[in-house]
Deep mutational scan, measured.
Amino acid sequence: MPSETPQAEVGPTGCPHRSGPHSAKGSLEKGSPEDKEAKEPLWIRPDAPSRCTWQLGRPASESPHHHTAPAKSPKILPDILKKIGDTPMVRINKIGKKFGLKCELLAKCEFFNAGGSVKDRISLRMIEDAERDGTLKPGDTIIEPTSGNTGIGLALAAAVRGYRCIIVMPEKMSSEKVDVLRALGAEIVRTPTNARFDSPESHVGVAWRLKNEIPNSHILDQYRNASNPLAHYDTTADEILQQCDGKLDMLVASVGTGGTITGIARKLKEKCPGCRIIGVDPEGSILAEPEELNQTEQTTYEVEGIGYDFIPTVLDRTVVDKWFKSNDEEAFTFARMLIAQEGLLCGGSAGSTVAVAVKAAQELQEGQRCVVILPDSVRNYMTKFLSDRWMLQKGFLKEEDLTEKKPWWWHLRVQELGLSAPLTVLPTITCGHTIEILREKGFDQAPVVDEAGVILGMVTLGNMLSSLLAGKVQPSDQVGKVIYKQFKQIRLTDTLGRLSHILEMDHFALVV
């Protein structure tokens, strides 16, 4: 994948999101292997301009796509893939009243899908469409860049269908997702969380590099694949309309690839034109409109599966009536509230959605109805927002919020430890010299600072030695090549209790 991002070429006709291997024109390309080798690009942008032909009021008969309808489940399912879809609609009884809503608040519980998330729908649909058009064949390999849930859905379907599955996901995604993927037989590649989507090191860039190296491999490409919004247009939206008897006044959905909100909203605009569509985008993402909503100094966020630093091709923002931004604290607070007060075992993005819903639905009156999409299960986040310690460490809970008995030293300040200034190293000294210094002084790690004293990161003896043994660096290389740029900081005025929580999850903390 090139470091400079080429513009994806656009073909003359058809839909841009065809499933299957992508040609340089962004659509299915038939021909000899030699032709494909000559024409197939190194990668295709996940934010390529959409060429979708959908228009409100256009006859369904003019759609270029294969459409399906929700099917009634048999008493005995032939395999677990038949437990994807037909998820329950559940009334939220307490939270709406707590925040003064007059309307009825309903939750579409997508964590009841077989793999635990709304992404099971698009995973199965992308595979079925690729099999139907002859792209996927027995023994082929599926590769997908994902925040985890699409990966789980694909790995689940691949396990049943017999495909090899490789999932490329950023490091910030939970260990629970990784464990589930491994249990399903998927191979996992992790990428830096802070890598831009168009960087060769991003999950998108690495996935395309693997595709170019592995024979008979395919990126189904949830960011561009029409099967993504079509899955929701054909099934999720129809289920909502049936469950609500066609009567709903507002739908609120958090947005990642945009397939969920695009597919549902398009069908609702056709069948229930008075329904307002509300999009939820986390602070630090750029999906919301108008652009002024996205202006923030924050560039990272903890909530998973929603928000991006690019506009995915499948996201149709014209069908969203209003956007709201959400933050991590309210997302996790509301997710825990949904679990504790409503018994809905949902993930953090569901918290984002409901946090926005109780604001947006203030305009609705008694007798009206708001539906929220709860995308995934708490299963993926047992060591994250479900953990009091994690919430404390991230600053989303305060010590006084917890009532468990603490040891005698818990409320003492870090400054009472009488710490001395640490050994520091410059980023320009060599790895070999740094190892000598650390061994001589008896230290395992040291902060790396520039000549102005600005902290650049941390270097550890173990990481340097393993990097040297693996051949990633040489003793003569500058130590700046092996620094940890993500590390926890703590102030002298913070409590030892807070430091204790940090050290339970990290090997060190830097006192500043």
Rank of each mutant, 00 (worst) to 15 (best):
K30C: 05
D35Y: 14
P64K: 07
M173F: 02
G151Q: 01
R266L: 02
G246L: 04
P170I: 00
V168K: 03
C15H: 12
W208F: 07
P21Q: 02
N225H: 03
R164C: 11
K137F: 12
G151I: 00
I264T: 12
D221W: 02
I214V: 06
P12K: 09
M169G: 04
A24S: 15
N194V: 04
G185C: 01
G96S: 10
I44K: 11
P59V: 03
T53S: 09
S61N: 03
D221N: 11
K36Q: 15
P49D: 09
R58L: 09
N225I: 05
L241E: 03
H65M: 04
M250P: 00
Q222F: 00
L241T: 07
T13N: 11
I240G: 00
A157E: 06
S147W: 00
V189H: 07
G205I: 06
T260Y: 00
I122T: 05
R161W: 07
A226H: 07
M250N: 00
I76N: 10
V160M: 09
C165D: 01
A24W: 05
M250S: 00
E131R: 02
M173E: 01
H66E: 02
C272H: 10
H218K: 06
G259F: 00
K83R: 13
H67Q: 10
H218L: 09
I127P: 05
P88W: 03
A231Y: 07
V118R: 04
G256F: 00
S123H: 06
N194L: 08
N113M: 06
P33T: 08
K211D: 04
A265M: 07
G259A: 05
L136S: 02
E187D: 09
A265W: 06
E131I: 03
S174Y: 00
H67L: 13
I188M: 07
K72C: 08
W54P: 06
L220C: 03
L156M: 07
G26H: 07
I95H: 00
I44D: 10
W43F: 15
C109V: 11
T87L: 05
A155I: 03
C165G: 15
L181V: 07
Y233C: 02
D133H: 11
L181Q: 03
V255R: 02
H67I: 09
G139V: 01
G185W: 05
A69C: 12
V180W: 00
G185L: 00
A107F: 02
